[in-house]
Computed example of a mutant assay.
Amino acid sequence: MAAWRDLVRFIELEYDVTRREPDEIRVRLHYGGEDVDDGERTQIVVVAREDVEGQDWVQIATPFARADAVDVTGVLAEIGATTVVGGAVIMGDYLVLRHSLPLVNLDINEFTEPLELIAGSAELLEEQFTGDDDY
């Protein structure tokens, strides 16, 4: 997979797309019950095309808490102990897990596995540190 449009086409076929813009697509991943009434939790993930020194990269990012509402040191310690892919950053008011990949020669498993790991980790962090399901 070497083109952004090919990745977007794949995402549209495989995921619950909630928003699409020229350089960004948002998807909702579902966890738990059959629907929201059954205790289902969801996680919004932003997949964006980024230009890094003339090369297309894909950034996978998902917020999981407001930075001012949680113990950031505790969150970082938990991420260090439990998370294999990605890292935590503050973007605006939010703590976000994100991971970036070069688009050139990207195999689909190099995208899907990090996306699912990032989203799943963010969902667990959100539940553990906020008790909510806002993102």
Rank of each mutant, 00 (worst) to 15 (best):
I118N: 00
D133R: 01
F111Y: 08
T112V: 15
E126P: 02
M1D: 08
T83Y: 07
V70A: 12
T83K: 04
R49Q: 09
I118A: 00
D38R: 04
D37V: 07
F10N: 01
L7C: 05
E50I: 10
E40W: 06
D37G: 09
E34G: 10
A67E: 10
F10M: 13
V70P: 00
V96W: 02
A88Q: 02
E123P: 00
D35L: 04
E78M: 14
E53I: 10
R9F: 13
L97I: 15
Y31M: 02
V52T: 09
T82M: 13
E50Y: 05
V27K: 02
E24Q: 13
Q128H: 05
F111Q: 00
L7Q: 00
V58S: 00
L29Q: 11
A122P: 01
Y31G: 11
D6H: 06
E126W: 00
T42W: 01
E21K: 11
E113P: 12
G74S: 11
D68H: 09
F111N: 00
V46N: 00
M91N: 11
G54Q: 02
L106A: 08
G54S: 10
A81K: 03
F111K: 01
G33N: 07
V72F: 04
M1V: 13
T18I: 14
F64G: 01
H99E: 09
D56I: 09
E53N: 06
A2D: 11
L125S: 06
D132Y: 03
I60K: 03
V89N: 08
L103G: 03
T42N: 13
V17K: 04
E123W: 01
I108W: 03
V17E: 06
R26Q: 11
R20H: 15
E113Y: 11
D71K: 09
V58L: 02
M1H: 08
R19S: 15
P114A: 05
I25P: 04
S121P: 02
L76S: 14
L95C: 11
I118R: 03
T42S: 13
S121F: 03
S121I: 08
L124N: 08
F111P: 02
G54H: 04
G39H: 13
G33M: 03
F111V: 07
W57R: 01
Q59A: 14
A48S: 14
D6E: 10
V17A: 10
E12F: 10
W57S: 03
V84Y: 04
V8D: 02
L29P: 07
V84P: 09
E50Q: 07
R41I: 15
T62C: 03
D37I: 10
V85D: 02
E78G: 13
M1A: 07
Q128Y: 11
E126F: 09
V85W: 06
V70C: 13
E40R: 14
D71C: 13
E50D: 10
R5A: 14
T112D: 00
Q128T: 15
V45W: 01
D37C: 05
R49Y: 10
I60M: 01
V36A: 15
D23A: 13
Q55E: 12
V70R: 05
T62W: 03
E53A: 15
P102A: 08
R9D: 08
I79W: 04
G131Y: 06
V89S: 07
V52S: 12
G54N: 06
G120T: 03
I11K: 02
A65M: 07
G39C: 14
D51T: 12
R19Q: 15
